[in-house]
Design a protein around this nucleic acid. Sequence first.
DNA 1: CGGTCCGTTGATAGAATTCAACGGTTGTGG
DNA 2: CCACAACCGTTGAATTCTATCAACGGACCG
Lengths: 209, 209
Amino acid sequence: MSYLSIQGNVDPRARSSYPFLRAPVRHANTTLRFEREQVICLPPDAAQVFKIISGWVRLVQDLADGRRQIVSFHGKGDFVWCMRNASVSICAEAIEETLLICADGISKEEMHQAALQQMVEAQKHVLLLSQRSSDERVASFLLDMQRRMGSSRIFSLPMSRADFAAFVGMKIETISRCLSSLQQRGLIRLHGLRGVEIPARAALERLLQ
Amino acid sequence: MSYLSIQGNVDPRARSSYPFLRAPVRHANTTLRFEREQVICLPPDAAQVFKIISGWVRLVQDLADGRRQIVSFHGKGDFVWCMRNASVSICAEAIEETLLICADGISKEEMHQAALQQMVEAQKHVLLLSQRSSDERVASFLLDMQRRMGSSRIFSLPMSRADFAAFVGMKIETISRCLSSLQQRGLIRLHGLRGVEIPARAALERLLQ
DNA sequence: CGGTCCGTTGATAGAATTCAACGGTTGTGG
DNA sequence: CCACAACCGTTGAATTCTATCAACGGACCG
């Protein structure tokens, strides 16, 4: 396995077994495949909007000092676009093997709807970050992910603890403590590193009032 | 002074000297005046979008348990719209005497631009809340307000400490401590309850790296 | 002039982070 | 296939940060 040689600040992912600069695999005219940990760069001729066919994607904002904020996670059916601006620069990255289609032909109406939805999500996130305790944030995230994974009692988180933590604005140790605490209280059950079982959704929801 | 009589949870503002249910004053066809602490309800026939001519407005999300999150502040020239949805309900309120025009005739392009800007602001807010210490949040807010007030060295905050706190996700005591600390370090100077002086903007910005 | 509201400050309690150690899993190369 | 290394996640102890509770002074309003 050969590594990319990079000057200056070396992105930790560049040292992992997944060199992060690599071209996506083109399957059909508009279908692209990205692998785990790959930064999603669309062909320059495509509109910078895409729709996820399968897999999971994170939107990431890197800070000067190395911390990173995860803005949102997106799965099957979601529309995603890169927001770049003088003051914010947010990148999309695949967190597992992901298929997507470049969405040049999306209707204005559909786009508008998606933008509004993202706005609502952003507001909910602000509320989560500023008003919730660590237990509540973790519970809220698990409930949200369960819903998005199809509401089955047992599901598998698509992201690592580090991504989990970077999204809810906590440290991974605190995430771990909260998960253990919720498990001890019988509100969840953990299966391996990614598996989560929610025996009674109502009980967990009661945490959030 | 007669008070409104309200059953159940009494809004604290209902007990203040500004009863909060009241019609705005109509100046011209489309120009409305709202007073301090007044909830901004637009006439039902108007588009629920407006532009601020003068004054300051806060967007507020009230929680079931009485806490409130301030989503954003808006001043002269800003476009504002109320976002209502199954999962979020955000209201606009004047924090001082405010003139605005209902903006039925705003171009699509202008609206789109404003929406994008709000999206960017929301992301910056998420970053502030999840990655910044209390000192950094206060410094960041002061710098932002200074810029919006015209970048003069001395300016007057349009909002109370309570609103300040509800925006940056802290308690008013902590806000007060941070302001005192920044003043002792020579990074700011306080003038009365609302006045703020930033002797050297660069020094304060250094706090944020 | 007196009361209420707003902001500041101090002492204490509580929550989350930091630092450190450890076990388990995964991937790599022999 | 096995051994080893790197990474990921969990747990404990100590520290740091913020909230809470309480008291107080000043501004504003009637």
